[in-house]
Amino acid sequence: MGLNGIVERLDKYQKRVASGRAEKIKPHHIQKAIEKLTAKEVELVAELAGVTKPSKRLRFEEKISMIQKQVERAKWLAQQI
C-alpha cells in the first residue's frame, strides 16, 4: 500500500486550505464518501455470488479489494483531519 501518494496529496490539500484556496473537509464529507464506496462494494459482492468463471471471479475480487482499500484510506483520512 503506497502511502507516499496519499500523504503527498493530503499535504498539498492542507496547504491549499491554509491559503484559503480549498474548502475544509469535515467528518460528514468523509462519511458520505465511505457510503458511496460501500454501496459499490455491496453491489459487487452481490454480483460476485453469481459468478462461477474463475477469471471473472478474480476480476471482481480485485475490484472489491480496491474499494475496500479506499474505504480504509478514507477512515485513515478521517483521523488525519
Partner: peptide
C-alpha cells in the same frame, strides 16, 4: 468542494496495480 478534495486524495497510486493489502 470537499467531496472533490476527498476523491482527489483517495485516488489510487501507481503502486496500487498489484497490491490489495493493508490500509495506511
Amino acid at each position: 468542494g470537499p467531496m472533490a478534495e476527498i476523491e482527489r486524495i483517495l485516488a489510487a497510486d501507481d503502486d496500487d496495480e498489484h497490491s490489495a493489502d493493508a490500509a495506511p
